[in-house]
Write a protein that binds this DNA or RNA. Structure first.
Lengths: 332, 332
DNA sequence: CCCGCTTGGTCATACGTATTACTAATCCGA
DNA sequence: TCGGATTAGTAATACGTATGACCAAGCGGG
């Protein structure tokens, strides 16, 4: 017995049959096994340090009680909490979570989704295109923060409302000239932000909007914000698609001798750690990342259970900190 | 055939036996199956959208080709890259990675390690105590950034050298009064930093060291740094255990009207995203997180292969940016 | 012409578990 | 006392794969 002990080893140790071991350890022994025998089995299992073979159990049951969480990048501070929320709910139902980072980790076969390494029961895809789940035909899936009108059930985030709240806040302070430092990422959530932003600015009397795109990193954001500030009609408020982009906007402002928020207001999105680490602390929209993961997992588990989860949207919340103020005099 | 197709379905479709399908798709058919038959099998598999059942394969082979990555918290920006490096190397060898966040996600049985959800072949434990792998007796494990003298093979980070480099840099600038804003976390890496720091300061002529502990979050770090700055002999340089802690130190300084780096030098550790998002950009020690994950995975794979991986230590690198300068006049 | 060898493929089995069908023993009411 | 019901447990089997043992042709050399 060099390898790990099996249920048969436990059976021999306890002087019963393998079936009995399985019944006892499976918890379905009520009325089939005497308490004394059950105790004996448990003791034997403990003595041998037995733990059931997952592969065998999965094969037998035809279910892995594992779901795949697909995220664009684990490095982003947004997805840690998403994972945590999802994993917590999953654990409560005896499910495990496997993370799949995409597109940074293409599968071995070239197609990124050719081979998720684990056998999975369902998919939770965060901030991804619907095609992302196309690699798993027939596997139940729930999308997070994606197009709610897509063919796959989803849990949404109130990003449009968040954008509207930002503009309302800035407009109330007196701003009319807005700059959108936009993430050049082809995800629904960013398209949605852009659309809501444009519409909201359109509703502001005398509102004007300029836009510059960038990657989601500080240097790229700094350059994009700089382009807006150096333009012919520089905005008095920079609306950023992401907290990290806001950090770039801060840098662009400082490089031009502009004080935030006295000379320039800046807003973020997400409310990740960075928002309060920056100086001044960032006015941003808090997205409930952990709740998103939890709600998505709950929906997926309901789906796996044969149910039909109701569409949900989790609202964002405008957090006003110190990076926004009235525009400087003489700019309106 | 309501469920997913099996190798037997493919066999029927191709007019061969199940064994043949397995041989062909397993890639070991050279000299056993004619090219024509192999092509037919492949075509049939493609037509049916066949993908082998992982659970069955795992059971049969007795190996899952999956390793468990244990990290304290996925929310920390340090562990995303660690995961990525590990996953990349693993994928190249046909292995998958499952993440287990600890201690935030205790297992169902109360004991955090009672039940990792997947069957695993090995463990990569990052910045954790050796006890962390005790829950998996007999499972090959490699520790990352942990005590190299422990009973488990490990890949180290040159954190002690990093601390020495920081002190050397600050001492060269003229600092003698150092404050250590220390992470109150019982991990080897932080003990190691503290020891190296104390020794290095002891070697500075006239060197003095005060210390304040905090949790790894901005608010707690701000408070701790404040305690040092308000003490009887305020340091001229704050050495922080972590970039995030440095952000707190910045805030404490600003709250007291101190300019970084004119009135106070601040250093970080890790060189995560935050380091360049802050103003001024942070002098810190870059830890090669992605390389760490990659090297750890390589060592683990070697271990799984029956080899005996040589101990390695990846050096940190001092990155001098704008948060350090000579101490203000009159302070020495 | 027969035997050994190669080629191309199939049969049977085992991995470890969960569960259904079955049996042996005990019990209780009439 | 007897027979149905209950209790306590076992035997057998299937999940889907990979692989070692086996086997049927074909073929060429002696």
């Amino acid at each position: 017995m060099t390898g790990r002990p099996t249920s048969r080893d436990v059976a021999r140790e306890a002087g019963v049959s393998q079936s009995t071991v399985s019944l006892v350890l499976g918890g379905k022994w009520t009325g089939r096994v005497s308490p004394a025998t059950a105790a004996g089995v448990r003791a034997a299992a403990a003595r041998l340090g037995y733990r059931p073979n997952r592969a065998a159990r999965n094969l037998r049951l035809g279910t892995t009680r594992t779901v795949l969480l697909m995220v664009p990048s684990l490095t982003s501070p947004f997805f840690g909490p998403v994972y945590r929320g999802a994993a917590r709910v999953a654990a409560r139902h005896g499910f495990g979570v496997v993370v799949y980072e995409w597109p940074d980790l293409p599968g071995p076969a070239g197609s990124p989704f050719a081979a998720p390494h684990e056998a999975i029961d369902g998919i939770l895809a965060s901030s991804m295109a619907v095609e992302a789940v196309g690699g798993f035909p027939g596997t139940p899936a729930v999308m997070l923060d994606s197009d709610p009108d897509g063919p796959v059930p989803s849990v949404g985030l109130g990003v449009a409302d968040g954008m509207r709240a930002i503009i309302a806040h800035l407009a109330a302070l007196g701003h009319t000239r807005f700059g959108h430092v936009a993430a050049d990422v082809d995800q629904w959530t960013f398209h949605s932000r852009a659309d809501a932003l444009a519409a909201a600015v359109g509703a502001v009397p005398g509102g004007a909007l300029v836009r510059a795109g960038c990657a989601i990193d500080v240097a790229s954001a700094k350059a994009a914000a700089g382009r807006l500030l150096d333009g012919p009609h520089p905005p008095t408020a920079l609306v950023c698609d992401d907290d990290q982009i806001s950090a770039g906007a801060y840098k662009a402002a400082r490089a031009r001798g502009l004080d935030v928020p006295r000379d320039l207001s800046v807003t973020g999105f997400d409310d990740v750690l960075l928002a309060t680490a920056l100086e001044p602390e960032l006015t941003t929209v808090r997205l409930p990342a952990e709740d998103l993961g939890a709600a998505g997992m709950a929906a997926l588990l309901e789906l796996l259970d044969g149910g039909c989860p109701a569409p949900r949207t989790l609202p964002g919340e405008l957090i006003v900190r110190s990076s926004t103020a009235a525009p400087p005099r003489g700019t309106r």
